[in-house]
Simulated assay, not measured.
Amino acid sequence: MTSAALWGFTVVAVLAVLTPGLDTMLALRHALLGGRRAGFTAVLGITTGCLIWGTASIVGLTALLTASEIAYNVVRVLGAAYLIWLGTSALWKTLPRNRKAEPEDVQIPAGRSAFRAGLMTNLLNPKVGVFYMSLLPQFLPTGPTASAWGALLVAIHLTVGLLWLPSLVWMAGRARAFLQKARVRRWMDRITATVLLGLGVKLAAEV
C-alpha cells in the first residue's frame, strides 16, 4: 500500500466521522443527559459496533449484505425497528402522565444502557457494513498482505472516532449544568426521540 492511499483513506475516515450523524447524536444525548461517563460509555458501544463490522468486512462476511438483497433488507428492517423503538420509548417517557417527580440532577443510566444503545445502533445499521465493504477495497493492495492492511485501515477509522466523539462528549459536559434541568432535559429527549423516529422511518422506507 502506498502512502498516498493511506493518507487518502485517512482523509475519507476523518470526513466520515466528523459529518454529524446518528453516532454523534447518541454520544451527545448520553453526555448531556447522563454525564460524561454515559457519553464515553456510548462511544465505547459505537466503537465496538464499528469494530465488529470492520472485522466482518475484512473476512468477507459483509459481502453478503452487498450481494444479497434479502440479507440487507433483514438487517435494515431490524435496524429501523430498533431506532423506532428507541425513539418511541424516549418520547413516551416525556409524556406528562408518564413523568415522575424528578430532581434536577437525575441521570440516565451510564452503564449497560448507554453501551447497548451505541452498540446495537451500529450493528443493526447495514450502511456501516456497506461503508467498509465498498470503501476498503479501493485502498487495499492485492496479495497476501491485504488483510493486514485492511486491519490497519479499520484501526485508523476507529482511532479517528475515538478522538472526535470523546472530544464532543467532553465539550457537552461543559454545558450540562444548564441542559440537566428537568424541563430542558425533557425537550432534549423529545428532540432526539423525534430524530430517532425519523431515522428509523427513513431506514425502513428505503428501497
Rank of each mutant, 00 (worst) to 15 (best):
V11L: 13
V11A: 11
V14C: 08
V14N: 04
V14S: 03
V17A: 01
L18N: 03
G21P: 07
D23Y: 02
L32G: 00
A38V: 03
G39F: 05
L44I: 00
I46V: 03
C50A: 04
L51F: 12
G54K: 06
S57C: 04
L61C: 08
T62R: 13
A71L: 13
V75I: 15
V75R: 09
W85L: 06
Q107G: 01
I108T: 14
A110G: 12
R112D: 03
R112M: 10
S113R: 03
M120I: 11
M120V: 10
T121R: 00
L123A: 06
L124E: 09
N125I: 05
N125F: 05
K127R: 11
V128I: 15
Y132E: 05
F139T: 09
L140K: 09
P141W: 14
T145A: 13
S147L: 08
G150P: 04
A151M: 14
L153P: 08
V154S: 02
I156L: 12
H157S: 14
S167T: 15
S167V: 07
L168K: 07
A172D: 00
A172I: 00
G173L: 08
Q180N: 12
K181L: 13
K181E: 14
V184P: 05
V195R: 09
V195S: 07
L196P: 10
L197I: 14
V201D: 08
V201W: 02
A205G: 04
V207R: 14
